[in-house]
Nucleic acid binder design. Structure first.
Lengths: 302, 302
DNA sequence: ATGACTCATGCCGATAGAGCATCAATTACT
DNA sequence: AGTAATTGATGCTCTATCGGCATGAGTCAT
C-alpha cells in the first residue's frame, strides 16, 4: 500500500470512473486499472465493483476510502509542518540572558521575533555567563547573551558581538573621587574593590585584573557579590569601589556615581552565543534577527 | 513521499542509525541512504543530521516523524477496517420486516446476528411488502422479510424462502361457521370478506382471489384494512370473514376463530429478499445466518 | 446494427531501486 | 600511535516495476 496507489484509489472512488481518474492524474486508464487491481490483490478484497458501464465502491472500499483520505490529508499537513519547521517558524527557542546587560533591548527583540514567528514558543532564562555555559552543555538553552566566553569553547559555540560596554568606575556618594569627571586606573591602586564573582563572569574578572596589572598594581578585593544589584549596594555602602561595564548604570543605583576611565580600558563586548553545528532552524532565524537588530541596539546602548 | 519511504525514515529516526534500519527492514544500507537522500531532496530540507558516527533528527525531521507515524498507524488501521468490512463485521444493516409474520423469530435472529457481528449497527423498519419494494428501490433497506414479490423484480432481488404459512379462515365468535374444525373454500361463496389491502400485499391478495375463482365464486369484499390488527378487529366486529396466513394467530385476537381450510389452499411462503448484485458483505453475512436459522424457524412456526 | 463508450489485458521500453563493491571518516582497541 | 571495525556516502550493474500503447470484450444509445 503506497500513497501513490491510494491517491489513484481515492480519485477513482470519487469520480466513479477509471478513465476520468486517469485524465485527472495525467496518466492513462490501463495504469489506473493495474494499480486498483494490485491494491485489491494486496488486500485480498474487492474494493470497487465495476462493469463496463458503472463503478461502485464496495463496503471495504468505503472503509479504505475514509482512511486513505485521512492519510493523504496527513501528507499535505506533513509537508506544511516540515516547511514551517525548516524556516524556523515552529518549535521552542530557549534563551539565556543577563538582565544587567540586556534588560533594555531584550524585550523589544522578543517582541519582534514573536511577530515574525508566531508559532515559536519563547522561553527566557535569566542566568550569568557561567550558568549559560553549563546550560549549553546540558542543552538546556539554544542561544545565550553574555560577555565573551573562555576560548576553549569557541569551537562548539559561535559568538556574535552585539555591542560594547566601556568599563566605568563605580564610587559611593561622598567618596573622595566622587566628584571627578574622569579617572585613570592607576589612581585607584590603593582603593578597596568590590568585584563581580570570577565564577560567574570569568572573562570580565580577568580583564579587570590584568588591566590593573598593566596599571602597576594588584587590586585588593574586599567583596565578591554574585549579583550586579548586590555589587551596587555594596559600593553604595562604602565597602569599596567597583569597575563594571557601563550598562549597569541602567539599574537602580541610588548612592552610586559612575566615572569614566581615561585612558579607557578595553571595552567589554556583549555577545550572542549559539551552537556552531547548525542544529535547529529556529536558532538560525533568531541569529539572523539579532544581526539585523545590532545597529539599533548599538545606538540604544551608546 | 511514499509510505515505504516513510517507513524507512521512521526506522532510521527511531534507531538513529542507517545500518541498523537496513537490517531491520531486511535490505542493505545504501538503499536506506538513497531513500533518505531522495526524501530530503523532495522536501528540500535536511531531515537527519548525520556524520559517520552519529545520526540526529533535525527540527523538520521531528515534525515529519510525528506525521509519518500517524500515517503508518492509519495504514494498519485501514488494513484492519478493510478486513472487518470484507467479512461483513462492520457497517449498518437495514432490515424491512412485517411484524405480523416475523414478530416471533426476528428478535432471536437479531440477537444471534448482533452476537456474531458486534460492530454492525442494526436498523429495523416495520413495513409491508409493498413498502419494502419501494424501500429497496430507494436503497433504504438492505434486506426485507415479506411474502413473495411480483415476478418482474426477480432479477434485481433474490428471494430465499424461509417457511410457509397455510391460509386459514378467520371468523368472528358466534358466526354460524365458528364451531367448524375445517372448511372448504366454496362454503364461503356467499360470505362478506375482509381482505388485506391489495396495495400492501399484492401477492397474497391475488393468491386469495384466484383461489376463490378456482372454487367457483368471486368474493364480496366489504373492507380492505391496511393493518393485520385492524383486519382482526373488523372480523371480530362481524364485518366479514377473512382468509389470512396462519401466522396471524399469534396476534392478540379476542373474538376471532381460526379454521383450517380443506382442501388446503396453496400455502404462502415468507421470503427473505436481498439485492441480487452482491453489494455489501454485511448482507451476505445476514443471508448466511438466516439460511442456517431456517430449520429452527420452520420448527417454531409449524 | 453500429458506434461510442466503459474497464481489462498483453506487450514493450524506460526507469527507479536493490544489491554489491568501495571509499572516506570516525571510534575503539590494542 | 596504529590498526581494525563500524559508520554513512557513492558509483555501478541488473532487475523488476510501472507507464504508455494497442487491443479486446462488454454495455448502452442512436
Amino acid at each position: 500500500m503506497e500513497l501513490r496507489t491510494l491517491k489513484t484509489f481515492v480519485a477513482v472512488a470519487t469520480l466513479k470512473s477509471f478513465s476520468a481518474a486517469a485524465r485527472e492524474l495525467h496518466t492513462v486508464q490501463p495504469a489506473i486499472s493495474r494499480q486498483i487491481a494490485d491494491l485489491e490483490a494486496e488486500l485480498g478484497v474487492s474494493l470497487l465493483w465495476r462493469n463496463t458501464r458503472e463503478v461502485r465502491v464496495t463496503a471495504p472500499g468505503e472503509a479504505l476510502l475514509e482512511e486513505a483520505k485521512r492519510m493523504l490529508a496527513l501528507e499535505v499537513q506533513a509537508r506544511k509542518r516540515v516547511a514551517l519547521a525548516a524556516s524556523g517558524q515552529t518549535g521552542t527557542l530557549r534563551i539565556g540572558y543577563m538582565s544587567s546587560a540586556c534588560a533594555s533591548f531584550v524585550p523589544s527583540l522578543m517582541r519582534d521575533f514573536a511577530a515574525q514567528h508566531p508559532d515559536v514558543t519563547l522561553v527566557l532564562h535569566e542566568m550569568t555567563a557561567q550558568q549559560q555555559l553549563d546550560a549549553f552543555a546540558r542543552e538546556e538553552i539554544d542561544v545565550g547573551l553574555s560577555r565573551p566566553l573562555p576560548m576553549e569553547l569557541r569551537e562548539t559555540l559561535t559568538a556574535l558581538p552585539m555591542y560594547e560596554d566601556e568599563l566605568m568606575v563605580v564610587v559611593p556618594e561622598g567618596h573622595r573621587l566622587a566628584r571627578r569627571k574622569r579617572l585613570a586606573l592607576r589612581e585607584l591602586s590603593h582603593e578597596d574593590f568590590v568585584l563581580f564573582q570570577r565564577d560567574q563572569a570569568t572573562g570580565l574578572f580577568d580583564h579587570i585584573i590584568s588591566a590593573c596589572g598593566d596599571a602597576g598594581f594588584s587590586p585588593r578585593i574586599t567583596r565578591q557579590p554574585a549579583l550586579m544589584q548586590t555589587l551596587l549596594s555594596e559600593v553604595a555602602a562604602g565597602l569599596g569601589l567597583a569597575i563594571a561595564p557601563a550598562c549597569i548604570r541602567r539599574l537602580q543605583c541610588d548612592g552610586c556615581h559612575f566615572i569614566t576611565l581615561r585612558p579607557a580600558l578595553g571595552a567589554v563586548p556583549l555577545e550572542l552565543h549559539y551552537p556552531s553545528t547548525p542544529s535547529r532552524p529556529v536558532i538560525e532565524a533568531f541569529v539572523t534577527l539579532v544581526e539585523t537588530a545590532i545597529p539599533a541596539i548599538r545606538a540604544q546602548m551608546a
